[in-house]
């Protein structure tokens, strides 16, 4: 049994090393991709409950089969304007490892495109500058049909420490605003 599992994971690693599969999606008009192994599920956008006193990039929380899952507005997280929810909007659910086990987090994206197989030869390290998003959010750049797609470093983009810290800051900012009124 354990042999079998080991072989399977070994297989998965092998695939990743040879030809990685990536989910591409649009944020605004830009294409981004994440490794398919990080993605747990893609769901339609449904009733999102907004959470007060949080920064813009926290879109809200949803009910996923009885669990409450936070949803991050990826556009706002990448320092763009908040995304407008349209009928093409989707939530990509990814699992983020924490010290207390993994937690599901949803990423609000404007459109989910396709799953691409990208050979390692086409993947290049992130440039030191030249993109308008934080360099530590970029895992690598993938060349697909002579167009570069940014592969997002999920662990950085959805870093729980950072998300929870910033929500705190935003709160104090709001207090300041409320205070100065």
């Amino acid at each position: 049994m354990s042999n079998l599992i080991r072989r399977e994971t070994g297989h998965a690693v092998a695939v990743q090393e040879q030809v990685g599969q990536y989910l591409t999606f649009l944020v605004g008009t830009e294409s981004f991709a994440v490794s398919i192994l990080d993605v747990k599920e893609i769901i339609e956008i449904a009733n999102v409950t907004r959470v007060p006193l949080t920064p813009d990039y926290i879109h809200g929380v949803i009910n996923l089969r009885g669990s409450v899952v936070p949803v991050i507005d990826l556009s706002a997280r990448l320092s763009r304007h908040c995304s407008e929810v349209s009928k093409r909007s989707c939530i990509v659910l990814v699992a983020v490892e924490t010290s207390e086990g993994s937690q599901l987090i949803g990423m609000l994206v404007d459109e989910v495109r396709e799953i691409l197989e990208i050979p390692p030869a086409n993947i290049q390290p992130a440039p030191d500058f030249g993109t308008d998003i934080r360099t530590d959010f970029i895992q690598a750049m993938a060349r697909v049909d002579d167009v570069f797609i940014i592969l997002l470093a999920i662990s950085r983009v959805l870093s729980l420490d950072e998300l929870s810290l910033l929500s705190d800051l935003a709160q104090s900012q709001e207090h300041l605003v409320a205070n100065s009124d």
Binding site: I58, S164, Q171
Partner: peptide, 12 residues
Amino acid sequence: KPLGKVFERLNG
């Protein structure tokens, strides 16, 4: 239902 780590510092 717990809100999880993201909101652990949320007051109120």
